[in-house]
Write a protein that binds this DNA or RNA. Structure first.
Lengths: 372, 372
DNA sequence: ACCGAAGAAGCAAACGCTTACCGCAATCGC
DNA sequence: GCGATTGCGGTAAGCGTTTGCTTCTTCGGT
């Protein structure tokens, strides 16, 4: 029987050829693994000369510290979970992009999952994220399932929701100010002379679409404008949904002169539905979106929309998570993170038909820039 | 000084409240941690009765095995890296979605990174993925940087490229059959009577766009059609690029009657550029895309395009990775994975103007379904 | 009744790292 | 000049698992 030497400081006969461990570096530099570790982590107590030797060795053997092992001892994985509802909805890739940039800039990696509105999926996703020991999770789906969330809250697990998830204390919430942006949208339309303004909502079983719809109704009420029930139609936050909803709007007798949509994909769907008719946007009907996705400015005509900056959404999410993760974060106590919204006027909105000499409608209205 | 007891089998005074380890379960079930581990991994040598007790304990304390620790000992992280060039290009979210579904179905998690065509970013991304000990990486950016790839290949690190990355042996390659799909596209146009067919390419410093352009030129040559240099314009694989390129095409004297584009976003940009002129698609000019993203069928008119199924792309990528990772995978030896492409005829293509009575052009051509 | 084989559970090493603690040499104070 | 401090590096414990080896029990064969 071969006497196996288990000198703990010897380089391992590696499993995968080429995977270099801290011991290889230590051997090469002629120091202990502790010193290597300290050098890598730039701990000032190590002699500069030695440190140089270590770094040289690191370079020569091509050492990369194993994050898993680090995570195991430090208890922090530097992994963040990001849950979105549907990654194929163009809003989310933009969000993901921003989130990722910010996260990596802070030394975190991101595990993304999309739920497709399926709560079983969400649950399994959450479980997997926890097994991976993520340091925190941002739930950016605009409709939350409340099951295991409670347990997590009890565990003081850093969690960020958008629009207040379940009414639980002690979780971070990105409070999107739908009211402001949507009011701006409605007022913009009203200022142009519109009175018959329809609204295509998102799927109403979700929270956020409901909130947006409420905001619209309130803004209309403020202006003293009635909204007939048939001008309130439900979409799905997808282009298909926008098309269908707009078609329904077009079929009925009392045509609105303007349509606000719960998100941009819906608005884009609406534009498509209108293109298929003899009607023109914005001359015959104005359309306003919500989100301001990249695509919006490339529509024909470029879409007037309410901007919800995914940059600030991502930034707030990261900040909130860090506040929950890092013990001495300046804003550790903050629980609500406001996200502002405001209208971006492009060319899909104009005076309602018949309100003015036709030629004034040729060039779409271009009010002054909204306040930033 | 308090004598610290270090009985290894006692539950830890946990770092994060609520993080439950295997020892908690062991204690609760009154067995050793080894038994818990074996029960969890369904190793048949454990007594059914004991196993039941263990599972009960697991349930009671809410135990989730720590993947990091598992990875550390097994040497496999069950993490897959997915590198895309630009996650905001709609093609990629679709790919990501498929990839993720497949990966999770096989028990893998996915780390996504988008390079934005920045090779420094790619490099840092790769490094981070390696530190995370990913089991393999799929590089789905359609233009590769060849730097550290070689080292990885030497390490026998499972790597999948699309379109043959650097001409290195021993890496898995998803061979997209551009030629076939593009030939079908060209032939479709030629069959309709087009002879003046322009091509908007992607950024030519990347490999895949070059291959697509080559495929187009070859298909044209096969048909004996000359392509004047001014009908070959370079885009950027984005909508903006498509708009600019199409504008350039429109400015020049010799207007093509059809335009093929290197990807769908380019084609969509081209459609937009054309909408801004009095020309009509498809009556005055036909447009063909490439990719068949979801959006394509919702264009006005619905876009005729060459489909490159991201489902099969994702499936092949996963298969290839697993073949590289799992020692006894059936296809461990396979290195090339063919991906077929074929045309999907919708309504952005029709007879060229003037070739036929006008009314025949009212309804766009609808040839029979292509072979699957 | 005794020995050996088989089955089941436990012990402990190992995965790659961080870090508390300890030992050693050089320096300081008086 | 000698004990006390200080500065640096090494030793080893431990993070949460898996797993080879050992131990203990049970049972069958003779």
């Amino acid at each position: 029987m071969a006497p196996v030497s288990h000198a703990r400081n010897q380089p391992s006969d590696r499993k995968r050829p080429g995977s270099v461990s801290i011991r290889d570096v230590a051997q090469r530099a002629g120091v202990s693994i502790a010193t290597v570790s300290r050098a890598v982590n730039r701990i000032p107590t190590v002699d500069p000369e030695l440190a140089r030797r270590v770094w040289k060795a690191i370079d020569e053997v091509g050492y990369l510290p194993n994050t898993q092992a680090r995570a195991l001892v430090s208890g922090r994985s530097h992994l963040l979970g990001l849950i979105v509802s549907e990654i194929t909805n163009p809003f989310f890739p933009e969000l993901v992009q921003e989130f990722e940039n910010l996260a990596t800039a802070q030394g975190y990696e991101v595990l993304i999952g999309s739920t497709n509105y399926d709560s079983a999926r969400t649950e399994s996703l959450m479980r997997r994220l926890l097994q991976r020991n993520v340091d925190g999770v941002a739930v950016m789906t605009f409709g939350v399932e409340e099951d295991l969330v409670k347990k997590l809250v009890e565990r003081e697990f850093p969690l960020v929701f958008v629009d207040a998830g379940p009414g639980l204390p002690n979780i971070h919430v990105l409070k999107v100010d739908y009211a402001e942006g949507i009011r701006q949208g409605v007022q913009h339309l009203a200022a142009l002379g519109h009175r018959k303004i329809a609204f295509i909502s998102g799927p109403l079983e979700q929270r956020s679409p409901r909130v947006r719809r409420e905001a619209f109704l309130r803004a209309m009420t403020e202006l003293g404008i009635q909204v007939p029930a048939e001008h309130l139609v439900e979409g799905t936050h997808t282009m298909e949904g926008g098309i269908t909803a707009m078609e329904r709007l077009l079929e009925q007798g009392d045509l609105p002169t303007a349509v606000m949509c719960s998100n941009d994909m819906t608005a884009i769907g609406a534009l498509h539905a209108i293109y298929r008719t003899p009607l023109k946007v914005p001359q015959d009907i104005s359309v306003v979106g919500f989100d301001d996705i990249h695509l919006a400015q490339f529509m024909l005509p470029p879409l007037t929309t309410v901007q919800m900056s995914c940059k600030s959404l991502a930034a707030a999410a990261i900040e909130a998570l860090r506040a929950g993760i890092e013990p001495d974060h300046p804003k550790a106590k903050q629980k609500e993170w406001p996200i502002s919204t405001h209208i971006v006027v492009r060319q899909s909105t104009a005076f309602p038909p018949g309100s003015l000499p036709a030629r004034m409608n040729r060039e779409p209205a271009r009010p002054t820039k909204p306040r930033a």
